[in-house]
C-alpha cells in the first residue's frame, strides 16, 4: 500500500459550517434583533452560532436547525450569559428607555409588542419572508406565528393610528 501522492485529505467540516452560516445567519439575526433589539439580538445570534459550531454534528440531525438556533438565542438572552447589558427594548415605568434604531413612532409602537410579535411582524412584513419561513426561523408553528403577526399588526395599527 502506498500513500496517495496527490489526494488531499479533506474533512470539510469548516466549509460546511461556512455554508451553513451563510444560509442560516441572516434570518436568525434578523429574528433575534427584531425580538430583543440590535445589541442583544446580535449578541444572541452570535451566541447561537457559536453553539452551532460547538454542536455542529448535533445540528445535522435536526430537521430545522435554524429554528433550534433561534431558541438557543432566546435562551442566551434569558440566561444572561453576557454582562447583563441593558436591553434596548426594556420598558421602565411604562416608558420605553431604548428603542430599535428605526423611526421614533414605530420604534415606540414596536416596543409595546412582545418579542415574538416583533419578530413575526418584522420578518413577514418588514423583510418579506413567507409565513412558513418565519415559522421555520422562529422554530414555531405556522399558526402560532400567524397569531403573533396578527396581534402585532392590530396593536401597531392602533398605536400608530393607521386604518386597517
Amino acid at each position: 500500500m502506498r500513500e496517495p501522492d496527490h489526494l488531499e485529505v479533506v474533512d470539510g467540516t469548516s466549509d460546511r459550517f461556512d455554508r451553513f452560516v451563510t444560509e442560516v445567519e441572516p434570518p436568525l439575526r434578523r429574528a433575534l434583533v427584531a425580538a430583543y433589539g440590535a445589541d442583544v439580538g446580535r449578541e444572541a445570534a452570535a451566541d447561537a452560532l457559536a453553539w452551532a459550531w460547538e454542536n455542529f454534528d448535533r445540528l445535522r440531525a435536526m430537521t430545522n436547525p435554524g429554528g433550534y438556533l433561534y431558541r438557543v438565542g432566546q435562551s442566551s438572552t434569558r440566561r444572561g450569559r453576557r454582562d447583563r447589558r441593558r436591553t434596548e427594548l426594556r420598558v421602565v415605568d411604562g416608558a420605553q428607555e431604548d428603542r430599535l434604531p428605526v423611526e421614533p413612532a414605530l420604534a415606540e409602537a414596536l416596543a409595546r409588542l412582545t418579542p415574538s410579535q416583533r419578530a413575526a411582524v418584522l420578518l413577514i412584513d418588514g423583510w418579506g419572508v413567507t409565513l412558513q419561513e418565519a415559522a421555520d426561523t422562529m422554530g414555531a408553528r405556522v399558526s402560532t406565528v400567524r397569531t403573533h403577526r396578527r396581534r402585532a399588526l392590530d396593536k401597531l395599527r392602533i398605536d400608530l393610528g393607521v386604518d386597517p
Binding site: A38, L100, L110, G126
Partner: peptide
C-alpha cells in the same frame, strides 16, 4: 414603515 424599519436594522446590525 415596516420595510423601512427592516432595512434600517439591516444597516445598523453587522452580520455574524
Amino acid at each position: 414603515r415596516l420595510r423601512d424599519a427592516a432595512a434600517a436594522l439591516d444597516d445598523a446590525v453587522e452580520p455574524v
